[in-house]
Amino acid sequence: MPLFHAGERIRVLDLGKAGHVRIPAYVRGHVGTVVQFCGVFLNPEDLAIGNAGGRVVGCYRVEFLQTDLWTDYSEYPDDTLVTEIYEHWMEPAHG
């Protein structure tokens, strides 16, 4: 069962992990809105070191306002960016 649902506000954790985590640095620590639960997948952190038998993790599409991601974003304030975040990198965001 997914922990988060479409429309929910979440914060991307900054777990400080190195390696093939597939969570771009530019979204870490930022608050976005869940667009879609995509299902569960093998954790890229395991796959990157050859472990194809690890636990599966939920993956979500999360949408951010560009002006939240980049303090100097100057193109248009309604522009957004959607990217995929694994569940263990997310926490509920309030307010």
Binding site: G39, P44, C59, D79, T80, V82
Partner: peptide, 9 residues
Amino acid sequence: VRVHDSNAD
């Protein structure tokens, strides 16, 4: 403009 960063699965 809605950018999709195809970063995972």
